[in-house]
């Protein structure tokens, strides 16, 4: 199968998934990449070059906010992202959209 079909489908839900993971707890980039890979059973293996522009967009749209952590000991400073109230509201809308969307697509496909 042409990999672009899978890529396009994934692309459509990435922002929702990132918002969802951030709604649980603030996280930094590498954490998001690792969690997405783990929770999706290896389906979503994001590269930094895909994740960072998504985080930029979400921040521009004020759906997330970021902060650089104070480095502790030998640990380097990390950029943490957290969902804003606006982000939570958008996530709820996206979740509802996804539920309806997947239900109808499944109905057609079954």
């Amino acid at each position: 199968m042409n990999p672009k079909y899978e890529q396009q489908m994934k692309k459509g839900v990435l922002e929702m998934l990132v918002l969802k993971l951030l709604s649980e707890k603030e996280k930094y980039g590498y954490q998001l990449i690792s969690e997405l890979k783990e929770k999706s059973g290896g389906l979503f293996v994001l590269k930094e070059g895909t994740l960072y522009p998504i985080l930029y967009r979400l921040e521009d749209e004020e759906l997330v906010i970021s902060r650089w952590s104070e480095p502790k000991g030998k640990e380097v400073s990390r950029k943490y992202y957290a969902v804003t109230e606006k982000g939570i509201a958008v996530l709820e809308e996206l979740s509802a959209l996804w539920a309806g969307f997947s239900e109808r697509v499944s109905a057609i496909m079954s």
């Binding site: 930094y28 980039g29 990449i33 930094e48 380097v76 400073s77 990390r78 950029k79």
Partner: peptide, 8 residues
């Protein structure tokens, strides 16, 4: 970002 994430 990259340096921080690679360190992580």
């Amino acid at each position: 970002w990259l340096e921080s994430d690679i360190s992580a």
